[in-house]
């Protein structure tokens, strides 16, 4: 009787041990340069996406193609997401190999958060046609995408 373990029982144990392994991997996180790079690229891509969204939203609003609440919601959500992207990366311990690159990346992300926040302020105030802001958003979006290969 001893050797006749039911397949279902075996399967459950397998899945359980797999889960333990996976969560184990998640918990143990040494400062590792490749992992940090991955997170940095993710954060930069996210921020670029939010900046571009804010740009598109303001432009559409400027052309009278959306109504104020829609623009506000859209840009406010972009601001929140850009903030999350920055915080998620800032929370990670910087590996020694990236000690030089990290401040630059975080600075870029910080600028993205500030600029999207400014865009949100404009959206709330209803001033959509600030050419300088639109250009700044364009330039920052390009910078972010270049920084994230």
């Amino acid at each position: 009787m001893k050797c006749s373990q039911r397949p279902a029982v075996v399967a459950v144990r397998l899945v359980a041990s797999l889960l333990v392994l996976l969560t184990g991997c998640g918990v143990v996180s040494e400062p590792d340069a490749t992992a940090w790079d991955q997170h940095a690229v993710q954060a930069l891509t996210d921020a670029a996406s939010q900046v571009a969204t804010a740009r598109l939203a303001l432009e559409a609003a400027g052309d009278g193609r959306t109504w104020p609440t829609y623009t506000t919601v859209l840009v406010a959500e972009a601001e929140e997401a850009a903030g999350t992207a920055e915080e998620d990366l800032a929370r990670l311990q910087v590996p020694p190999e990236r000690a030089d690159a990290a401040p630059e990346v975080l600075d870029l992300l910080g600028r993205a958060v500030d600029l999207v926040a400014e865009a949100r302020a404009h959206a709330v105030a209803g001033t959509y046609d600030d050419r300088a802001l639109l250009d700044a958003l364009d330039r920052l979006s390009d910078d972010l995408r270049q920084a994230a290969p």
Binding site: Y70, V73, A81
Partner: peptide, 13 residues
């Protein structure tokens, strides 16, 4: 534009 869609507002944009 390199935008990733994460909100319903973006879906309608």
């Amino acid at each position: 534009a390199g935008v990733a869609v994460e909100t319903l507002g973006q879906v309608g944009l």
